[in-house]
Nucleic acid binder design. Structure first.
Lengths: 115, 115
DNA sequence: TTCAACAGTTCTGAAATCCTGAACTATGGG
DNA sequence: CCCATAGTTCAGGATTTCAGAACTGTTGAA
């Protein structure tokens, strides 16, 4: 198990961010981490919306978010502590994350009006 | 040649938009169309940055932007008239496009400080 | 009308990427 | 030490993307 890689904020690119968040599962994960400030572990997301996500896929999703510079992950014993890097990212690309999270929130509101 | 398809604005999704704009070539095309209001034709983009883009790829890129609801294309004789759908998209997802275009602009400024 | 040039599109196969089950690593508890 | 838990890595098949070649559709000239 190689140590977790986190890009420095100057190496974070818009395209990587957009690509990472263009997947609804990853967007949901990120929204949740952003909403809670800190979320324990991948297993929290074994189910997103309707779908069951296998843990190998979850691990990859977290890696993509990490590589894109969107989250910071830290091992705490057996589990993972994930936090967003919203502060840094927002300093570099002002308003970007807020607009995206907002758009997803609006979207969800339309999708499930009577849920 | 099947007629050009444009999704209605309610069918436009955040993920499709982010996916479309997560490609730097498409982002450049879209930024240009957005900047000019109207751009004639794909061939305008035979070169983006350093890269030569074959026209079959350009055609695909335009299709992705169209399917994502970002641009409107109309045949005028032999060539194509492309316009953005920023207005509609911005009404649906306020601030999203502006934030993304801004982020790309910032990014480019960093990439080429002495060009 | 017929022809050539031009602007894009579609087709197709190769390359890259994504998804996920299975095997693995690391940590903590009994 | 052994097992359970949390996550990672590997390997493969499925999907997506890229780009050359062949095609469609339009315009202008002869």
């Amino acid at each position: 198990m190689r140590p977790l890689f986190h890009p420095s904020i100057e190496d974070v690119s818009v395209e990587a961010i957009l690509h990472a968040l263009s997947d609804p599962v990853r967007a949901a994960i990120f929204a949740q981490v952003a909403g809670q400030g800190c979320v324990q572990g991948c297993t929290t997301f074994s189910r997103v919306g309707e779908r069951d996500i296998p843990k190998s896929s979850l691990s990859q999703h977290f890696k993509v978010l990490r590589d894109a510079g969107l989250i910071h992950s830290e091992r705490h014993g057996v589990e993972m502590r994930n936090t967003t890097r919203c502060g840094e990212v927002d300093a570099r690309f002002p308003g970007l994350l807020a607009a995206i999270l907002n758009a997803y929130a609006d979207n969800k509101a339309c999708d499930t009006p009577q849920a």
